[in-house]
Amino acid sequence: MRRDIFQAIADPTRRAILVLIAVQAMTPNAIAEHFDITRQSISKHLRILSECDLLAQKHEGREIFYELKIDKMEEIDIWLAQFRKIMEERFQQLDQVLYTLKNKKK
């Protein structure tokens, strides 16, 4: 199943996983150590990221390492997803500003 990139970054844990593996390839256990959630939910997040085609797997001995897979189009998607997030946050801040200004006028 091919998922939308927005699903990948919609979740804060998945965003954090992406940051971790962008720096270095990691095993699922090493990733799980960074979070206070079950190994099963880490596996679920890794599966979703795989379905978004963001993970590359490397086998070393018996261990599987995950790393961030980015080709040109995916970079564009990641950038667009981040840009979308920036615009969303920006407009939420504007909601607050408008709310304050409206109350001042009254």
Partner: peptide, 14 residues
């Protein structure tokens, strides 16, 4: 640039 900035923002949320 966006990636760099976004990356920094993501690091902050991390």
């Amino acid at each position: 640039m966006g990636f760099k900035e976004g990356f920094m923002m993501t690091l902050k949320s991390l």
